[in-house]
Simulated assay, not measured.
Amino acid sequence: MISIAGGIAAVEKQLASQLELDALTVAGTKAQALDQVTLLDENPVISPLDKPIKPDAGVAVLNGNISPLGAVIKPAAVPAHMYEFQGLRLCLTLNKKRSIVFNKEALKRKRTRFTL
């Protein structure tokens, strides 16, 4: 469906106000590339930023003590009862040998609170 609606270029054109348009690409700048993109008058797939299909849809970027390297989630896929969590946790870390190990430092605190 998105390819019929204009593909990734059409999505980028809708997001132009959020992009660094002077960024260089293999074809010049992002602004030059987007100048050549034509949007459909009525697009049922790609909505403009000022008229989102769902105002709270999309993705959320999480970071902090529960995810020090960050994580990306889709909030619409998270049930409302999971937006806040308090309880025991199991902390794992990827070591230098690329093996998953228990993170003993993170286990020192017995309870944690997480709010989305």
Rank of each mutant, 00 (worst) to 15 (best):
D50N: 13
L90F: 00
A9F: 05
M82V: 03
K110Q: 06
A71N: 13
A16D: 01
N103A: 14
Q18F: 03
K74R: 09
T93K: 15
A106Q: 11
E12R: 14
D35A: 13
P68F: 00
R98D: 15
Q18I: 02
N103H: 15
A16F: 00
E84N: 13
V26W: 07
A71D: 10
L24E: 14
M1I: 04
D41E: 01
S99G: 06
M82K: 10
H81E: 10
Y83M: 05
R89L: 07
S47F: 13
G64Y: 06
A9T: 07
A33T: 12
I4Q: 13
N63P: 00
K104Q: 15
R113T: 14
D22P: 02
L69Q: 12
S99W: 04
A27I: 00
L39R: 06
A9S: 14
V37L: 06
L24S: 10
N95R: 06
L62V: 11
Q86M: 06
F85M: 03
G58M: 02
I4Y: 10
T112C: 09
T25E: 06
P55I: 07
P75E: 00
N95V: 07
C91S: 15
G64P: 08
K74W: 11
P55N: 05
G28Y: 00
P79Q: 12
P55F: 02
A31C: 01
F85A: 08
A27R: 08
V26K: 02
R89I: 10
L62G: 10
G58A: 03
V37S: 05
V26M: 07
R98I: 10
S47M: 12
I4K: 07
Q86Y: 07
S17M: 02
P44A: 06
N43C: 11
G6N: 08
V59C: 11
S67Y: 04
R98G: 08
G7N: 05
R98V: 03
G70V: 00
P44G: 11
K74N: 09
E84D: 05
V37Q: 01
A76F: 04
E105M: 11
P52G: 05
L92H: 10
K104P: 15
I46S: 03
L21Y: 04
R113H: 11
P75L: 01
K51W: 00
G58S: 01
L24G: 08
K74G: 05
N103D: 15
I53N: 14
K13C: 07
R109D: 15
I8F: 05
L49K: 06
S67A: 15
L40Q: 15
K54H: 13
P79G: 08
V37F: 02
L116G: 00
P48D: 04
V72T: 07
K110N: 04
T115L: 14
G87N: 03
G70P: 08
N103F: 13
E105V: 13
C91M: 14
Q14W: 00
H81G: 07
A57F: 02
V37P: 03
H81K: 11
P48Y: 01
V11T: 11
A76S: 12
